[in-house]
Design a protein around this nucleic acid. Structure first.
Length: 477
DNA sequence: CTGGGGATGGGGCCC
DNA sequence: GGGGCCCCATCCCCA
């Protein structure tokens, strides 16, 4: 770059306009800037389509795309790295890049976006475009894809909320399930009937309508030319906790911490309507997860990395975060932390889990008192010496010593028929299903424990539609 | 306020 | 691909 000497120091040469601005002579406006940028981009796009001055060849699965280095450099972190490596190479040979990790159609969408600022997202290509954008390190495209998905799921969540509103119209307070993130606020929202219009199509129509009406913020309109600086992924993630029902890992964990304890300390949900409602919401979430899975193309993340011996290894990349896994099954498992899908409900307390093993662990710990440790003195007990104490649906063991020391009083079930022993001050004949707000405590023998606990855990991957009946049964068993 | 422990959830990997 | 085990991180309660 040409340098000029100014007061004994060298400064970069300034264009006329900048000098003019310093002197207050520059005449400009936002419209003029936008018009100029738009025109320039159009010109570049025309050049690309006419293959004029293209100095970069991109081969995607055998299909050749011609483009301009400068444009790719300015749009993609991947190309910035790639082209920087050859920047010192002053040869006139066009730079060449080859990809097999996404389809030519997907790259067409991305390249069109680069040259026009218009991102043609559809329900069928959003995942693949997002994955490719992740590979190419195009954060703005990723953000737009995320917004597209989030907006769709927001509609879904509104539908869920609306259902909840309808279910709770009898005035019952909404019950927040521990495991599920159900929107609490009822939202007036028209619910489309299945088959009438797809979630994605509805969302696109809404986006288009809002955009045309000028009601949509630039963030969700996939405009490329002037993305605000705060529109980074990090900022986006920060907003998720309050705005979007589609959490990243970070926000998921934050929220998890907030809700988790409520679940473990509150009594089981005994009011049927909210439970059913949560199940419906969860069912809806599972459906959305299924839709997401259905839209996952094989592309989802076939990312070529390299082993120590420089041999390529295939990994599957999560389209929603930077996580990669070796197996597709592991990716599916991982995706549950994004979709919120919890297909394994505890039949005893309605808490839901993402994995069967977590459900099993929870059930054995919380409801079966499988740990042979006295909860009070922490000493090891045996099946015989450790008496099982029940609090609601929670069960744990106390050794005889701790029971005597604490003067433990509660409902003591007869070991033979399970009926409470008639003692003064005990809650007799109180069923938790009938007296949900009273903490019923009793002792239980191992015989009874073995008899009923094994049957309690009905492990199944739930088809939520049938869930309400089965859970009602176990709630009162 | 702090450390320990329980509960939960996610990742890696073997079967 | 699913099930299961192990390990680890995080959050929260409690002493």
């Amino acid at each position: 770059m040409e340098m000029v000497c100014e007061n004994g120091t060298y400064r970069p040469f300034r264009a006329q306009g900048e000098t003019g601005r310093q002197q207050g002579q520059r005449w400009t406006s936002a419209d003029m800037t936008a018009s100029h940028q738009s025109g320039l981009l159009k010109q570049l796009d025309q050049q690309r389509r006419q293959e004029l001055f293209c100095d970069c060849n991109v081969v995607v699965e055998g299909h050749l795309f011609k483009a301009h280095r400068n444009v790719l450099f300015g749009s993609s972190g991947y190309f910035r790295m790639f082209l920087s490596q050859g920047a010192k190479d002053c040869s006139l040979e066009p730079a060449s890049a080859s990809f097999d990790v996404f389809s030519p159609d997907t790259f067409t969408v991305i390249l069109d976006f680069v040259y026009s600022g218009q991102l043609e997202l559809t329900s069928s290509n959003v995942i693949e475009v997002m994955s490719a954008a992740s590979y190419l390190q195009m954060n703005d495209v990723i953000a737009y894809c995320k917004d597209f998905i989030k907006s769709s799921l927001e509609i879904s969540a509104k539908e869920d909320s609306n259902e909840q509103y309808l279910c709770l119209s009898d005035g019952s307070p909404p019950v927040q399930d521990s495991g599920d993130d159900v929107m609490e606020t009822p939202v007036a929202c028209s619910v489309s009937t299945p088959g009438q219009v797809t979630m994605w199509d509805q969302d696109r129509a809404q986006l288009k309508e809002e955009y045309q009406g000028g009601a949509l913020s630039p963030k969700t309109t996939a405009r490329h030319q002037s993305p605000p600086p705060e529109q980074s992924l990090e900022a986006d993630v920060e907003q998720e906790a309050t705005v979007h029902p589609f959490p990243s890992i970070a926000t998921e964990r934050r929220r998890r911490g907030g809700n988790k304890r409520k679940a473990s300390t509150t009594h089981p949900v005994v009011d049927d309507s909210p439970t059913i409602d949560l199940q419906r919401a969860s069912s809806h979430k599972a459906q959305k997860a299924d839709e997401l899975y259905a839209t996952l193309p094989t592309i989802v993340g076939v990312v070529g990395l390299f082993n120590k011996d420089s041999s390529p290894t295939m990994r599957f990349k999560c389209p929603f975060c930077t996580h990669t896994v070796k197996r597709k099954a592991d990716l599916k498992r991982h995706l549950r932390c994004h979709t919120g899908e919890r297909p394994y409900p505890c039949q005893a307390c309605s808490k839901r889990f993402t994995r069967l093993e977590h459900l099993r662990s929870h059930f054995e710990t919380i409801h079966q008192a499988r740990k042979l440790v006295c909860r009070k003195c922490k000493r090891h007990v045996t099946e015989l010496s450790g008496r099982v104490v029940c609090e609601g649906t929670r069960r744990y063991r106390l050794c005889d010593v701790c029971i005597q020391e604490t003067g433990y009083s509660g409902v003591v079930l007869d070991s033979t028929d399970g009926a409470p022993v008639d003692e003064p001050g005990l809650l007799l004949g109180v069923d938790e299903g009938q007296e949900e707000n009273r903490e019923v405590t009793w002792l239980m023998d191992d015989d009874e424990l073995a008899e009923d606990s094994g049957a309690d855990l009905i492990i199944q991957e739930v088809d939520d539609s049938d869930e309400e009946t089965s859970e009602n049964k176990t709630d009162h068993s």
